[in-house]
C-alpha cells in the first residue's frame, strides 16, 4: 500500500519539509503519494525530491492539484 501525504494548502517551503520528514521515516523502495497545489508547490517540491535522490515515477493532475508518486531513494545527497 502506498503512503499518502496531503499537502494541499501548505505553502513552500513547509510542504517540502513535511515531505522530507515523511520520506525519512520510510524505507528504500517504498512509495509515497504527495498531494500538492499546482504551480510553485508542485514545481518546487518535485525538484527538491529529485535533488534528494528519490525517484519520481508518476505525476497525476486534476484541475486544482497534482499528485507526485515518489519512490524513496537509497540515500540523500543533501
Amino acid at each position: 500500500m502506498n503512503q499518502i501525504l496531503d499537502l494541499r494548502g501548505v505553502p513552500c517551503p513547509m510542504n517540502y519539509v513535511h515531505t522530507k520528514l515523511r520520506l525519512e521515516e520510510m524505507s528504500e523502495g517504498e512509495v509515497l503519494e504527495v498531494f500538492l497545489d499546482k504551480g510553485e508547490p508542485f514545481s518546487n517540491v518535485s525538484r527538491s525530491i529529485k535533488e534528494e535522490g528519490h525517484e519520481i515515477i508518476k505525476v497525476d493532475r486534476s484541475e486544482e492539484f497534482c499528485v507526485i508518486v515518489v519512490k524513496k531513494g537509497g540515500g540523500t545527497n543533501g
Partner: peptide
C-alpha cells in the same frame, strides 16, 4: 520521459 509535464510547469 515519463510525460509528467513538470518541465512545462517550470
Amino acid at each position: 520521459c515519463i510525460a509528467c509535464g513538470l518541465c512545462a510547469e517550470a
